[in-house]
Simulated assay, not measured.
Amino acid sequence: MSDDAAAVEDEASETDAGADEPAADDSEAIEDVSTDELLDRLTDSDETPTEPATELRSRIEALEDAVAEKNNEIDELTEKLSRARADFKNYKKRTKQQQAEMKARATEELVERLTDVRDNLVRALDQDDAADIRPGVESTLESFDRALEDENVAFISPAAGDEVDPERHEVMQRVDSDQPAGTIVDIYQEGYEMADKVLQPARVTVSADG
């Protein structure tokens, strides 16, 4: 073999050996980039962006706008809810205060009427022992009854012969009577009720059985 042929053969061998060596790892050249950076590179490069890349960027921007709008709505609703809670708390406070004021005024009015009744009783007792105080006492009683009626207090006054109502009548005594057995004979003391609630049952006598 000539020297020239040997040289050509050696060069070919070196070329084949270089071709068999592994190429550098291309993955090392790929940077870890965000979606926005990747899209910027695709759309802002000198090359004409592909249609899928442009469409993807438009969709992402639309979604970002929608998310921002929803966040604004959430903030507005949260603020409205906070104001509503504060308004309701103030409403409850005002209502409670108004109820307390109404109760105080109602009590004040009742006390004023009762003091008038007491003054009438005092005047009746201040009369001479020989004076007939019955008319004054009766007038005072009428004033007192009107005060109770103004407060929606009703009297429980069953009539003779009425059936006994355990919720509204209290039997004090059973007596012999011409009335049917177990019915009311007489009222020992009137009762009182207010707003369908018995404040004090009427005390009655009842006809004995047989």
Results as ranks from 00 to 15, higher is better:
A53C: 00
A53F: 04
V8R: 12
E167H: 04
Q99M: 12
L121H: 05
M102F: 06
E9K: 10
D116L: 05
I156N: 07
L110W: 04
E79H: 06
E61S: 09
P201Q: 08
E28G: 03
E37H: 00
R59I: 10
N120D: 15
A181C: 00
I184H: 03
D145W: 02
E170H: 09
V185F: 06
R123Q: 06
N90K: 14
A202S: 14
A160F: 02
V8C: 04
Y192P: 04
F144R: 10
L39Q: 03
E21W: 08
D132Y: 06
G136S: 09
V204K: 10
S34E: 03
R146H: 07
T140Q: 07
E190M: 08
V198C: 11
E69S: 11
T107Q: 15
E76Q: 13
P22Q: 02
A29N: 08
D176G: 04
E31T: 09
G210T: 06
E28H: 06
L114E: 07
A181T: 00
R118L: 12
I187N: 14
A12W: 11
L77N: 14
R118Y: 08
A208Y: 07
F155I: 12
G191M: 05
E51R: 08
A84M: 11
T54P: 01
A208K: 11
D129M: 04
Q127N: 08
S82E: 12
E73K: 08
K93F: 01
S157T: 15
E69T: 15
D3G: 10
V33T: 11
R57P: 02
R174N: 07
G136F: 10
E9D: 09
D145M: 03
D129F: 08
E69V: 00
V122A: 06
E28R: 10
D196G: 09
L114M: 15
E61A: 12
Y188Q: 11
S139F: 04
R85E: 12
A23F: 07
V137A: 09
D128V: 04
V164W: 11
K197T: 14
G191R: 00
M172T: 09
E55A: 12
